[in-house]
Design a protein around this nucleic acid. Sequence first.
DNA 1: GTCTATAATGGGATAGAC
DNA 2: GTCTATCCCATTATAGAC
Lengths: 207, 207
Amino acid sequence: MTTKDVGRTAKRGPYAKSEERRQTILDAAHAVFAARGYRGGSLQEVADRAGMSQTSLLHYFPSKRDLLMSVLERRDEITSGAFPDDMEEGLADSVIRTALHNEDIPGVIELYTVLCAESVTDEHPGRDYFTERYGRLRASYGRRFAELAAEGRLRPGVDPDQAATSLVALWDGLQTQWLLAPDQVDVAKGLRGYLNLVILPGTDPTG
Amino acid sequence: MTTKDVGRTAKRGPYAKSEERRQTILDAAHAVFAARGYRGGSLQEVADRAGMSQTSLLHYFPSKRDLLMSVLERRDEITSGAFPDDMEEGLADSVIRTALHNEDIPGVIELYTVLCAESVTDEHPGRDYFTERYGRLRASYGRRFAELAAEGRLRPGVDPDQAATSLVALWDGLQTQWLLAPDQVDVAKGLRGYLNLVILPGTDPTG
DNA sequence: GTCTATAATGGGATAGAC
DNA sequence: GTCTATCCCATTATAGAC
């Protein structure tokens, strides 16, 4: 959205076409890395998809590593709405909505699952990104669960921070199984099941 | 164990040394694939670790793909005891024990996490292995939860099959987070937390 | 900005001597 | 069984013409 607006408001600016080109490349790279991983995907394949030569691609992104980092940064924009801090929506509803939303965007879950696990390998450029991302997610959901606990809406004995870690872990694990057997695994149902166990029903409908 | 026994009982047989060599290679390949993934790891690096040339390695395993499949098969032996069908132990205790056991074997969790996610990429040789493995795990744990349900020890409203899927998903996801931040994530604790939510205490101490 | 050409490196796999 | 030598292919990245 931000990008398109730039394109509209600065259509004749010196960077308008260049920015459009960058977006095309990022789309292509997203698809390639999702389908083949970072190490398994090649700049040539990205260039083919983007309709340009491999060297032209390197004019916009000076290295494969840079390209990956830009893809990861843009992923956050695509899935924004995924984070629980954006509205007065209940935690459970927010999570389920985001899970269903992501299933509808081709390649988003593949990219995330593949690159995340690949990032734990030696010298992988995406490692810091995922480490920091998980830290943020645990802290963010931990706060939400703590709020629920303060309202007496967390099941007794459940630790907010552990619930946050487990929610994120469950989500990731369900997506992995879903990618391998989409007919046998229902991500949203699994998340709902967990959240129903942990969160007690409240009088406030927005809980 | 099987391998060592073969070595002992057939020490002077024609295949004893060859089998030993194969095990050395599999150890090396396990370490390399765990640290760099399948696509990121090279036969040369495996050969270096095993103390032989890359071509000698290919004498024992005709292709990189064959090597990977053998590593995956042997992984099941290394982690045997991981499956809940081997003794009269409670489901929860069995899971926790296996989780702690795996943490102590260097590279086992790395290998599993990295290769599993990598296997969802295009034309990855490990894909069928992980798809079938998940199918077996869901079925196996699904039966265990169903048994508990029949004893009235599953929390009302919890579906046994969904609990099985979720347990496996949670386990995987916790391991991924643990690999990226071992000081901030406790796999066994997270699993125990989930199992305590789902399984009700029983009079039988082995439940 | 885009391309061709190419450098520089590394990959998996094969042939064949010993 | 083990090695050297090599093939053939792919990769990322750079140089430089246009």
